[in-house]
Each structure stands twice: as C-alpha cells, then as structure tokens.
C-alpha cells in the first residue's frame, strides 16, 4: 500500500460521511487536535464534521532520520464528528475496511486510553485502537476543550498513518515506505528529518526562542483584548511550538516545564472562552 493511497482512501471515505475535507493548518502544530478546525470547532453547539491530514511536529522525537520508527514530524489523519454519531465505532471500522483491511482476518481491540492535552486544557475519554497488537488510532470522546465542557460531545479519531501504512505493507523502516509509485517517504523527507533534528537538538537559538515565546504570548493577549480570538489562537500555537523547540534543545528544566505548560494552557483557555462567547452572540443574535 502506498502512503498516498492510504490518505486518498481515508479522505474519500470520510467525504462520503459528509465530512468537510479540510487541509493542514499553516502554522507548526504538535497534533491535529491543535488545528483550529478541531480545537475551536469542537466547542459550542453547532454540528461539525471534518477530516484532514495534519503534519505534526514533535521536535523531541527527532532522530536525525536514523531511527526506522521515530521522526520529528509525522502525519496524522484527523477526523472530528460533532455530535458523535451512535454508530461511530461502526463508521470507524468501515474506514479500515475502506483501506483494504479485511476486518474478519484481524484482531481489532479498543483498549482504554484517556487522552489529555495539558497545554490545551483538553481531555477526553476513549481508547487506543489496536490492530493485531499495533496501535493505529486514538479514539476520543472530548469531554473538555480549552477548559470548557463540550456539548454536544465531539468524537475525535486520529490515525497514525505512517505506522498504519508500514504495518499494512510489512515495511520495517519508515523511510522505505512507498509514497507514490516512484518516490519513497525517505526520498521526500529524510534530509528534512536530519536538518530539523540538528536544528532542534543542537542549533536552535535558545535566547531567540525564549524571546519569541514571550513576544507571541504578549501579542496573543493583546489580540484577545481586541476580540480577535482566532488570530490570538495562532500566536498561542506559535508559543506552543517555541516551547517544544526549547524543550528538545534541553533548555527547559523539569522545574520550569510545568510553568511553560501552564502559560500556554492559560492562553488556550482564554481563546476558547472568547471564541465560545462570540459563537453565542452569533447564534442568538
């Protein structure tokens, strides 16, 4: 199975389920959840179905392109359905069938895993889905986002698509994955993994990132004062990424870490609160 075929299969399948097929956000994020199409749209009463690929940067997971399983940037396929449909597990399982997995030939299990994103003030209840012992999906009913109780309840389905593709093709090294007929994952991305690993672990300017964190944070709060929560959220994301780079760079001690996380969370929660307030005005005039 080619990497792009997997993406196409998932996009087609979820498009048929009346999802908006969206695109990645244009700011660095650590997970598809951080895309405003999830983080913000999960809030409030309006129904929302969306699916998209999200390139997700985890600087600390970088391995200079030398580890067959770990990369600083991987791709998530993200689905949000609000409210969660009654047959959501069935819909999900059919998406696996749409990728060519014969469900009767495999062991598919839902094992308890309660997802939490402290920087987003978000948590949910659900499972990790295992395919023959392989973790392929995080399946979560969001209970709170940005510190706000969700209602109706959205369900988030996040597929780790490289791993899924490696597993289905029996490929032992991520860089050997066929992306298209003629290009491998390694052709497209290996050098990038090296450079970003080198940058985040060795070269990134600590002073610059510390400054940027402070500036972005300040700008975000200023934008909230101007009642521009969508723009403020961009700066919250930039803060979060600056923190991740500092962390990978070894510039955040364990004692400082909770303080950074708390600062990003405070920002994310303030954005969520203002966004919800705006929605209420929009809905009720």
């Amino acid at each position: 199975m080619k990497f792009q075929d997997l993406i196409l299969a998932l996009q087609n399948y979820w498009a048929q389920q009346d999802c908006v097929i969206s695109q990645p956000y244009d700011i660095e994020v650590g997970a598809g959840t951080m895309n405003p199409h999830t983080f913000l749209k999960a809030l409030g009463p309006n129904p929302w179905n969306v699916a998209y690929v999200e390139p997700s940067r985890r600087p600390a997971d970088g391995r200079y392109g030398e580890n067959p399983f770990r990369v600083h940037k991987h791709y998530q396929f993200q689905v949000i359905l609000k409210p969660s449909p009654d047959n959501i597990q069935e819909l999900y399982l059919q998406s696996l069938a749409a990728m060519g997995i014969n469900l009767e030939d495999h062991d598919i299990r839902f094992e308890e895993d309660n997802w939490e994103a402290p920087t987003l003030g978000a948590w949910g209840v659900g499972w990790q889905v295992l395919l023959d012992g392989m973790e392929i999906t995080q399946f979560t009913y969001f209970q709170q986002v940005g510190g706000i109780d969700t209602y109706p309840i959205p369900v988030e389905i996040t597929y780790g698509i490289e791993r899924l593709c490696m597993f289905l093709g029996g490929v032992d090294n991520i860089f050997d994955l066929p992306w298209s007929d003629s290009v491998t994952y390694g052709d497209a991305r290996k050098r990038e993994e090296y450079e970003f690993s080198k940058y985040c672990f060795e070269s990134a300017s600590i002073e610059l990132h510390n400054n940027m964190f402070d500036l972005y944070e300040k700008e975000a709060f200023r934008l909230l004062e101007e009642d521009l929560p969508l723009v403020a959220y961009d700066y919250a994301l930039k803060c979060s990424h600056a923190f991740n780079v500092l962390d990978a760079r070894g510039a955040v001690s364990t004692t400082q870490r909770p303080a950074y996380i708390a600062r990003v969370r405070k920002l994310a929660c303030a954005v969520a609160k203002q966004y919800v307030a705006q929605q209420e005005v929009a809905n009720h005039g």
């Binding site: 409210p83 969660s84 209840v125 009913y141 109706p152």
Partner: peptide, 8 residues
C-alpha cells in the same frame, strides 16, 4: 471515570 457522548 464516567463520560458523556453525542447529545446524551
């Protein structure tokens, strides 16, 4: 731990 789902 309990949870809510859908519109329930």
């Amino acid at each position: 731990k309990k949870m809510r789902w859908g519109n329930c």
